[in-house]
Simulated assay, not measured.
Amino acid sequence: MHFDFKEEQLQFADALRRWVERGYGFETRRAIVRSASGVDDGAWATLAELGMTALPVPEEHGGFGGDAVDMFVVMQELGRGLVVEPYLATVLGAEFLRLGGVHGELLAEVAAGELKLACALGERQSRHDLNDIATRAERSTGGADGGWRLDGEKKAVLHGAAAGVLVVSARSGGGQRDAAGISLFAVPADTPGVSITGYRTLDGMRAADVRFEGAVVPESALIGSAGEGGAILEAAADYGAGLLCAEALGAMQALFDSTLDYLKTRQQFGVPIAKFQALQHRMADMYIHLEQARSMALLAAVRLAEGKPAERRRTVSAAKYRVGQAARFIGQQAIQLHGGMGVTDELPASHYFKRLAMIELTLGDSDHHLARFAALPGFTGEAA
């Protein structure tokens, strides 16, 4: 299999890396994280100018029609730069809209950088099971075109307070954990009955709790068909997990590089500590984890681009598990090798470690994806 990136993909990555190095350095990021909104409008405008918001949007809606491999190089650079802008939340929301096939006007706004999205999927009781939905969607009796009434609460919605439109999963039928009976909606954040409480997360990102109390949306807000959103939800969640693997890879590479640089400059007994064989062995182990994670993350992107559901499920779960294990190992080793400085706010190492920890918990942790992988057809020898 050919794993070399195309020239256009490398150009995207290079442009993004140069912007991060020149305009989104570590101190700039720290200032953004501490600001009231936790994001920067200027940075978002730059991402749009670079074509990043248009990349995953289909060409018929003003985008470039980029696939998961194209997005892999972008997310890797965002992970390397610890970018806290609502890019992941927006492109994941755009994937829901793309799969739904009926919200071209919203996708056009995303491509132009005029609209930010967020995905309100998880609930207090659901943990990593996105089919565990208590939020209810019922046919509305009011209004000229009927529509739907939403009631419930979504927790830890990534960049929920910055979004103009929320992609919301709700149950319109079936049992609370059934794949059937799930409906998806594109809900404007200013809809009456929608209340959003934002806060900063451990890794410097922003999240929000979103409550729906009699929020009424029109029939046109549906993404896909009523009660049949389970397949879209699974496919989009796998897409998001694949993007997270790429982001984690960029963060791990940066953390590995900075740790190696530190070992070359930190001295004990008159020599750089990189000369100590025990520390060289630990760096070698970190490198092995990094390369194994890279292989799995890239394979997941390829399978996502191919669009075969069975292979997508298998490879994404395998990648999320392997990347999660690598992130924990590399993060812990980097912190230990930096010593007490590794946990200080002034050093990037602690920020990379916290971001990697949050990626592990987003869209299914290692245990969740290991169990999912083991439950897939073919794992125990039965026919797929």
Score class of each variant (00 low, 15 high):
Phe353Pro: 02
Tyr199Pro: 06
Thr197Asp: 14
Met205Glu: 12
Asp40Lys: 00
Tyr87Thr: 00
Glu311Phe: 12
Gly324Glu: 04
Ala357Tyr: 12
Phe329Met: 06
Arg171Leu: 03
Asp238Lys: 14
Thr90Trp: 05
Ala89Gly: 03
Arg34Ala: 15
Thr265Ser: 13
His159Cys: 06
Val57Arg: 01
Ile133Cys: 06
Thr135Cys: 10
Gly230Pro: 02
Gly331Tyr: 00
Glu228Gly: 03
Ala251Pro: 03
Ala94Ile: 03
Thr344Tyr: 09
Gly62Pro: 02
Leu117Trp: 10
Glu291Phe: 08
Val73Asp: 04
Val217Trp: 08
Ala215Trp: 10
Leu298Phe: 15
Phe5His: 11
Tyr199Trp: 13
Leu243Arg: 03
Leu233Trp: 04
Asp40Val: 00
Leu10Ala: 13
Arg313Leu: 11
Lys354Tyr: 08
Cys245Asp: 10
Leu121Ala: 05
Pro218Glu: 10
Ser37Phe: 05
Ala45His: 05
Glu85His: 01
Ala31Met: 12
Val210Tyr: 08
Ala246Asn: 09
Pro218Asp: 12
Asp238Gln: 14
Thr90His: 04
Gly173Ile: 06
Ala226Ser: 12
Val39Met: 09
Arg17Gln: 00
Arg127Lys: 09
Phe185Lys: 00
Gly62Phe: 03
Lys116Trp: 13
Leu16Glu: 06
Gly331Pro: 01
Ala237Glu: 05
Arg313Met: 07
Met205Gly: 05
Leu130Glu: 11
Pro309Val: 07
His338Val: 01
Glu60Asn: 07
Gly25Val: 00
Leu249Val: 02
Gly62Glu: 02
Arg266Glu: 13
Gly79Pro: 04
Gly143Phe: 11
Arg206Gly: 01
Ala170Val: 09
Arg211Lys: 13
Glu213Cys: 07
Arg18Cys: 00
Phe212Leu: 12
Pro272Gln: 03
Leu130Ala: 14
Thr201Asp: 14
Gly224Asn: 07
Gly229Val: 10
Ala45Met: 08
Leu361Val: 06
Arg177Lys: 11
Gln268Asn: 09
Arg355Val: 00
Ala274Leu: 12
Leu243Phe: 12
Gly93Tyr: 06
Ile330Asn: 02
Gln176Ile: 15
Pro272Ala: 07
Ser169Gln: 11
Val316Thr: 14
Ala108Val: 07
Leu222Met: 04
Gly175Leu: 14
Met52Ala: 07
Leu78Tyr: 04
Ala163Tyr: 02
Val343Asp: 15
Gly324His: 05
Glu95Ile: 01
Pro272Val: 09
Val20Glu: 02
Asp365Arg: 02
Ala284Lys: 13
Thr315Tyr: 09
Gly364Met: 06
Ala156Tyr: 14
Glu77Gln: 11
Ser295Ile: 13
Arg127Val: 09
Val20Tyr: 01
Ala208Ser: 07
Val165Ser: 08
Val168Arg: 02
Ile223Val: 11
Ser366Asp: 15
Gln277Met: 05
Arg127Thr: 05
Ala120Gln: 11
Arg322His: 12
Ile133Leu: 10
Gly270Ala: 03
Gln268Pro: 01
Ser172Ile: 03
Met71Ser: 11
Gln253Glu: 14
Arg127Pro: 00
His128Met: 09
